[in-house]
């Protein structure tokens, strides 16, 4: 008698449901709780102005967190994001120097720069077999140095269109937020319904199995690192439209915030598991937290403590689901 049939009948289903969805439920549960705190304990949370700003803020972290997530899904990491955002805002501000005619070239060159840096990351990881952590750590230090060399005080100027873009609305929403939503939908589609998406999970799931299955592991890596750096440059451009100048102190520690959002969202640092909706949940948690702490007048020195507690407890919440 074959025992295969018997082996499969494990009374697992409800457990599996929680394992597969527990992380999402936990993270969005946290989002709801925080929103309720905002509704009941602050006066301004539900104001149109606050919500508009909150959603616009999520776009800033969200764009780079999604880039980080792509890299982490392949079991990599990108520590250079903050520095690259900073370099991007400086370069684009200088190139634009307040002239409308320069808007498009400045944007294109900045994006090219970002893509180029992502290409170099993947090149070093693929060809020299250096770990992503080290490659992007070096890149983080180098780009920070580059930013310092360019300027230590605000420099350059956004064109008029670039500045206006920041406050533009479509209906009740910020255009930045809507573009972010389009990015979300696109990425969900890419990850679920394209070959590249499948390959991303495969490479992160097990690089050796992927290679033996004939998957172009190196090309997948070029893809995710280029996208990640490209999105960091996009974030730099968003900062330019917000500040109007090349501000050399923005995005400090942003790479760590993106990693935090990715982890809270349930994407495994070992790769192969996780996804867009989780990461967005993580971004929302962090954005709401920052917003609430401002609205509740939490003193600066306690903010770090609270943030740390939220991070650990949000992870602990679904770790208990899985074990």
């Amino acid at each position: 008698m074959s025992s295969i049939g018997l082996l499969q009948k494990r009374p697992f289903n409800s457990q599996r449901f929680w394992r597969q969805n527990g992380r999402l439920i936990a993270v969005y549960g946290l989002v709801v709780i925080m929103a309720l705190i905002g509704v009941f304990f602050t006066e301004r949370f539900l104001s149109e102005r606050n919500l508009f700003n909150l959603l616009r803020q999520t776009a800033f972290l969200g764009v780079v967190a999604l880039g980080q997530m792509l890299v982490v899904l392949t079991a990599g990491i990108d520590l250079s994001i903050g520095s690259l955002v900073r370099v991007s805002v400086l370069v684009s501000a200088i190139l634009m120097s307040g002239d409308s005619n320069n808007t498009l070239p400045a944007i294109l060159i900045t994006l090219l720069l970002g893509a180029g840096i992502g290409f170099v990351h993947a090149l070093l990881i693929n060809r020299l077999n250096i770990s992503p952590f080290i490659v992007t750590l070096a890149s983080f230090v180098i780009l920070r140095g580059v930013a310092l060399t360019i300027s230590t005080s605000p420099i350059g100027k956004a064109s008029r269109e670039t500045l206006l873009f920041y406050d533009q609305r479509v209906g009740p929403f910020s255009i930045l937020f809507l573009l972010f939503v389009i990015l979300i939908v696109t990425l969900i589609f890419v990850l679920r319904r394209t070959i590249f998406g499948r390959y991303v999970y495969a490479v992160g799931g097990n690089q050796e199995v992927a290679r033996l299955a004939g998957i172009p592991v190196q090309r997948v890596r070029y893809g995710v690192y280029i996208l990640c750096s490209l999105l960091a440059s996009v974030c730099g451009l968003m900062w330019l439209s917000r500040m109007g100048v090349g501000d050399p102190v923005i995005a400090d520690g942003l790479e760590l915030t993106t990693i935090t959002a990715v982890i809270i969202g349930g994407t495994s640092l070992f790769g192969g598991r996780g996804g867009v909706m989780g990461t967005i949940g993580g971004v929302l948690v962090l954005a709401l937290l920052a917003n609430l702490m401002v609205l509740l007048n939490v003193q600066q020195q306690y903010q770090g403590l609270i943030e740390g507690i939220v991070i650990v407890s949000s992870i602990a919440l679904y770790n208990q689901d899985t074990h």
Binding site: R192, R193, T194, I195, R198, Y201, A202, G205, N206, V209, A210, A213, G214, I215, G272, R273
Partner: peptide, 25 residues
């Protein structure tokens, strides 16, 4: 085997090219 991936994705991984139209699965 990709132990953490669904059975579906394990089976179709090497032949995804055959299962797409205009790049969409």
């Amino acid at each position: 085997l990709f132990t953490a991936l669904p059975i579906r994705q394990n089976i179709t991984l090497p032949i995804l090219n055959r299962l797409t139209r205009n790049g969409v699965l």
